[in-house]
Amino acid sequence: MDTDDLSTETYSGILGEAEKLSHDLTLQYGILSYECSNEQEYIDNAEKLTKRLIKAKSYDLDEIFFGNPPNKEDLNNTLSMILKNIEKIKNIEKIKNNSY
């Protein structure tokens, strides 16, 4: 799937939040979409990616950010916000799926 296929909530909650910190972080979430067949799979994989990035070592971050990693505290703050946004997105999806 392409990022254009994501709902507004998912796009802004994940990609939009990532872009506030770093285009390279946004790129990681954008590339992820091509490995997914639907939005729910994207959300699940984005959550896994976010948790892996929180645990990443500095040498891993150096590679992920093409030799220019952001400040670790700023990165973790952004990743925490993305996780919060993912929870909100999941709640929106639950409401949509339970509506008649």
Rank of each mutant, 00 (worst) to 15 (best):
Glu93His: 11
Glu41Arg: 05
Asp5Val: 01
Leu75Tyr: 11
Gln40Lys: 14
Ala18Tyr: 01
Asn77Arg: 15
Asp74Phe: 12
Leu79Thr: 07
Tyr34Glu: 09
Glu35Cys: 04
Leu79Cys: 05
Ser22Lys: 13
Ile82Val: 03
Lys48Asn: 12
Glu19His: 04
Asp60Arg: 11
Asp60Phe: 11
Ser99Val: 14
Lys51Trp: 01
Asn71Lys: 10
Lys84Trp: 07
Ala56Asp: 07
Ile89Phe: 04
Leu49Asp: 02
Glu19Ala: 08
Glu87Phe: 05
Glu19Thr: 08
Lys57Glu: 09
Thr78Phe: 06
Thr78His: 07
Asn85Gly: 09
Tyr34Val: 04
Glu35Lys: 08
Thr78Trp: 07
Ala18Ile: 00
Asp60Gly: 10
Lys96Met: 13
Leu53Cys: 01
Leu49Val: 01
Lys94Arg: 09
Lys72Val: 11
Leu25Gln: 08
Glu41Gly: 04
Glu35Met: 03
Ala56Tyr: 05
Gly67Pro: 10
Leu49Phe: 02
Ile43Arg: 00
Leu75Gly: 09
Lys84Met: 07
Asn68Asp: 14
Asn45Lys: 05
Leu25Ser: 07
Thr10Ser: 05
Asp62Val: 10
Gly13Gln: 01
Tyr11Ser: 00
Lys51Thr: 05
Leu27Tyr: 02
Phe66Ser: 15
Tyr100Thr: 14
Thr8Ile: 11
Ser80Gly: 14
Asp44Arg: 04
